[in-house]
Design a binder for these strands. Sequence first.
DNA 1: TCTCCCCTCATACGAACGTTTGAATTGTAA
DNA 2: TTACAATTCAAACGTTCGTATGAGGGGAGA
Lengths: 208, 208
Amino acid sequence: MTVLSTKERILNTTEKLISEKGFSGISLRTISTHAKTNLAAVNYHFGNKEKLIEMMLERRLDTLFELRVNLLDELESGRVKPCNLKHILKAFIAPALTMSNDKHQGGKRFMLVLARAYAEKSEFLHSLLSKRYADIIKRFAQSIQRASPHLSQSTVFWRFHFIMGSLIYVMADFGASTKTSDLSESDYFNLCCNELIEFALASLTPSK
Amino acid sequence: MTVLSTKERILNTTEKLISEKGFSGISLRTISTHAKTNLAAVNYHFGNKEKLIEMMLERRLDTLFELRVNLLDELESGRVKPCNLKHILKAFIAPALTMSNDKHQGGKRFMLVLARAYAEKSEFLHSLLSKRYADIIKRFAQSIQRASPHLSQSTVFWRFHFIMGSLIYVMADFGASTKTSDLSESDYFNLCCNELIEFALASLTPSK
DNA sequence: TCTCCCCTCATACGAACGTTTGAATTGTAA
DNA sequence: TTACAATTCAAACGTTCGTATGAGGGGAGA
């Protein structure tokens, strides 16, 4: 059990509390208390509340997009497996859901936080996604386009966005849902991940 | 131009401001000012802030689910058109998007508010959806199941939820997006509606 | 006209918020 | 040890919030 710095404790606590209570309804006083530090420490380390939330989000988003782009690189190199539609979709979807299974990364918290952030459509997140990660999203769209030549470019664009919507919805649902299934948590994750990939695949595959 | 009561002005203003600024970051003072009334009027007519938001949401949700269930009734009666998968999906998706085009109903505002409400996963909305509208959602799921015999019941369940996720994501995107297309607003709505229905249809149709 | 009731108003209250400040404490290199 | 920087701390400031209160306005019926 390593000792975490105050800065890390604040980031982790912020993530945990926002995943539980949402962006509103969470105060710096609550965060600092749960992080076992002082109210002023937040402003000392992060400047203000907005910067704290930005850093908390960027930390996870960078990891997520790095995982995605690494998988896509590997696919497009052709060294490991064929660069077909299913593998491309899996490269986009799986990292989001597997990150949530990593207990050391905060478990389900990340997914809920990210889903909430998407839903709130904050100015910050919108500009972050449209600047820092736009190229990666475009790469995936192009890769999907190449694997789906029967669909027009604009239809592929629409459906990719629809799929992202489904993914975010599922992510939000995970954290909030009181389990109704009798599967173990990781089995449930895997089942959902597979269902989502098959769903995305079907939505981009020509019907008979 | 009919004169609206204070109560109606407060409801409309609440919807408008929440669609613009989200549930957080909106105060009763801002609402009462924009509704051209007094701060205390909100508590007089609605009791407290939470009740106000509940009434604002229920007003639209009742309309939405009534539209949906009327279309499904019509389909299942078999009087007008065949009860096939596409028409079922359209009966679920179209009302959400056409309501947003009704200028007299507040335009795009309703969609954004509802999308935000979904995203926040508030206790109120969760119980409202799982109590008041659960039967209607189950009816749609069963109807889709009958039209998709090649898929297992659990897969239909998953995909229906994924489609709902896409719909909500699109709804949230509409209000927030600064238009990039050169289509007129209603043309853009219709295009999106069609793309979403075709997407949902493809995701439930057997591939060749 | 008077009275009653529904509604609107200005105003006040206590609580919670983000942020700031300066002193106390801790860690570190000389 | 000493000196200096980095960090943590308690306390306070000004704002804004949701809610409560009591006085005033105005239309309807007697």
